[in-house]
């Protein structure tokens, strides 16, 4: 394995990790702060991707489409909260799972009805469509570097908001003792609504920036939701910094594992056996990590303060 290849893998891992973070951030807050299991969170990722597709087609410009998509993603999140989720806060986890699973099916089918079942693509915005020469044959797209930059900026902004603003303080307080926060005269429902809307918007944003690279199809959020749950379990439920560390970790392990597992195994076994086991083992790595974390640090790597 050459150094360039390793570098590319690390960049990809970082990029994937940041994408996961954007999704996991909302999920961990909703789950941590409200104790609410929202399976429909992954579908917001798909919604974001379809929104950017629709608005790019409509306006012909990626940047105005980006703004419109973010606003729409926020509104759709708030609408779902108002129409469905707020009735479920007091209900059991099973009810929440059932209702939010229903939303997944509904939105996946709606996407299919509106946009057709085929895989759609959008072009990368003009200004970011170049690429950097890494080796003689290989170039690395600027767009991918840009998503890493934006992802990091988002992570920092989120971290600062949670740690140093009044809203962030209330969210942290609300996650441990919601009754106490409510008793102090804070409108906890309003707070939940904000967390929900922003979480949905972040997942939508992840879908938007993923769309030019990964293409758009119904059900694209379903797999990423599972990984996002793995991330929040590894990081510690309700903890933003935990979600960040875990997301980067999962991104790197998954990406590096896929390429290295087969190669490392081929030192031990012959190549056809390695080719059989390698890919299977690589896709299990993050779940093995999760199992290990659950055994040795059941609260996650960086548990939210005061989480019980």
């Amino acid at each position: 394995m050459s150094f360039t290849l390793f570098l590319i893998l690390c960049l990809n891992g970082l990029q994937y990790g940041l994408l996961l973070f954007l999704i996991a951030a909302g999920l961990t807050l909703v789950f941590g702060v409200m104790g609410f299991i929202n399976l429909a969170h992954g579908v917001q990722y798909m919604v974001g991707a379809y929104l950017i597709f629709a608005f790019t087609a409509l306006t012909g410009n990626f940047w105005s489409a980006l703004i419109l998509s973010l606003v729409m993603a926020l509104l759709i999140g708030l609408l779902l909260e108002y129409a469905v989720f707020r009735h479920l806060y007091e209900r059991s986890h099973l009810d929440q799972v059932l209702a939010t699973f229903g939303i997944i099916i509904f939105l996946n089918e709606l996407a299919k009805v509106l946009f057709g079942p085929a895989t759609l693509t959008i072009a990368t915005p003009e200004i970011l469509s170049g690429s950097i020469q890494l080796t003689e044959q290989l170039r690395y797209p600027v767009y991918r570097l840009a998503t890493i930059g934006v992802g990091l900026a988002m992570a920092i902004a989120l971290f600062l908001t949670i740690s140093y603003t009044r809203t962030g303080m209330l969210i942290r307080a609300g996650s441990t003792t919601p009754e106490m926060v409510a008793a102090l005269g804070v409108n906890i429902k309003q707070l939940f609504r904000i967390v929900f809307g922003v979480g949905a918007m972040l997942a939508g944003f992840a879908g938007i920036i993923a769309a030019p690279i990964f293409a758009i199809e119904p059900g694209m959020g379903d797999n990423i939701l599972i990984i996002a749950f793995v991330v929040i379990i590894i990081g510690g439920v309700g903890s933003i910094s935990g979600a960040f560390v875990a997301a980067i970790l999962v991104g790197l392990i998954d990406t590096l594992g896929r390429s290295l597992a087969t190669e490392l195994l081929s030192f031990v076994f012959d190549s056809s056996v390695a080719n059989q086991i390698g890919p299977a083992l690589a896709s299990m790595l993050i779940y093995i990590l999760m199992a290990a974390i659950l055994v040795f640090r059941p609260k996650g790597l960086l548990p939210a303060k005061g989480a019980s």
Binding site: S2, T4, L5, N12, Y16, Q137, L138, I213, F214, T255
Partner: peptide
Amino acid sequence: QDFSAELARMST
């Protein structure tokens, strides 16, 4: 989803 690792291997 992401073929860039495979693409890098291809190029080398």
